[in-house]
Structure formats: structure tokens, C-alpha cells
Design a protein around this nucleic acid. Structure first.
Length: 153
DNA sequence: CATGAGCGA
């Protein structure tokens, strides 16, 4: 839709340019028009062929499993109120790829509740638990455990 | 601003 109108604009501009290019190449003005029409027709075929290629861009059946890594949500408790999400993400990213980190805040009061959830690769989750559980983080002993409710892989 | 066991819009 937008591609077609844009193709028309580009087509006109290219055709005009092709007309002058043809003027430089051919001595006769009739030949100018002929070459311009030929080039214009070629542009029409090319742009038409491109725009009508509306097949699904990534319909290759091998693309459906696009890095579907098994993720495990970890419960992280006893977090310091000063802790922000980036610090937690960086802390956990040393033991595995962190998918998402969410620190829970009270919706009513807006205050932080001191715990959160870290979603990371399931293969790296036990290592992160063993390494970060009962570990001191900003003078607070973290409690890292597998999440129980809400989301499960 | 202040709080400290716990499992989430």
C-alpha cells in the first residue's frame, strides 16, 4: 500500500533521470524516449515484482524454534531496599543469561517489598541459586530459590 | 520518609 505509492514516486524520479541519461547516451530525442520507456518499464517490472513478493518474510519452518531457551524463574528474597533491578541483573548475569528481572513493589503504597523474581536459563538456574543463595549483597543475605507460583516453564 | 517475613500486575 505505502510501498506501491513509494515505488511510483521512485519510478517517476528514476524514469526522469533515465531520460537524461538516455539523452547523454543517444543522439536522437526519439531514442531518448525509447530508452526512457524501456528503463521505466524495467523499473515497473522490478518494483512490481518486489512489491508483489508479499510472501511471509520468515516463513521458514526452521525459524519457529528461534532460541527457545528453557527459562526458570527464581525467587529472590531479602533484597535491600536500595537495590535496583540493574544491580540484580548484573549480579545474576555472572552465573547465566538473565532474561528478566522484576522487583516487586506494593501497588498501593508504591514502596518496595524487598523481593523479586529473576528469570534466567534453566540450565544456569541451579548454579545461580547455589552461588547467590545465602550470599551477602549490600550487607543483606540474599535468599534465592525457585519460584513456586505464577509462571512456570 | 520508614519498614525486613515472605512468593508476583
Amino acid at each position: 500500500m505505502k510501498n506501491s505509492s513509494l515505488s511510483v514516486v521512485i519510478l517517476i524520479a528514476v524514469a526522469i533521470a533515465a531520460y537524461f541519461v538516455a539523452g547523454a547516451l543517444a543522439p536522437l530525442q526519439a531514442l531518448h524516449l525509447s530508452i526512457a520507456v524501456i528503463i521505466g518499464g524495467a523499473i515497473v517490472l522490478i518494483s512490481g515484482g518486489v512489491s508483489t513478493n508479499n510472501d511471509s518474510p520468515v516463513s521458514t519452518s526452521s525459524n519457529e524454534t528461534n532460541e527457545n531457551i528453557e527459562t526458570q524463574t527464581l525467587y529472590v528474597g531479602n533484597l535491600p531496599y536500595r537495590a535496583n533491578e540493574s544491580a540484580i541483573r548484573k549480579l545474576f548475569s555472572d552465573y547465566g543469561q538473565v532474561v528478566s528481572v522484576r522487583l516487586l513493589k506494593d501497588k498501593q503504597t508504591g514502596k518496595r517489598r524487598g523481593f523479586g523474581f529473576v528469570e534466567m536459563a534453566a540450565s544456569d538456574a541451579p548454579k545461580a541459586i547455589a552461588a547467590l543463595n545465602e550470599q551477602e549483597f549490600q550487607q543483606r543475605t540474599l535468599k534465592v530459590r525457585e519460584a513456586n507460583e505464577r509462571k512456570e516453564a
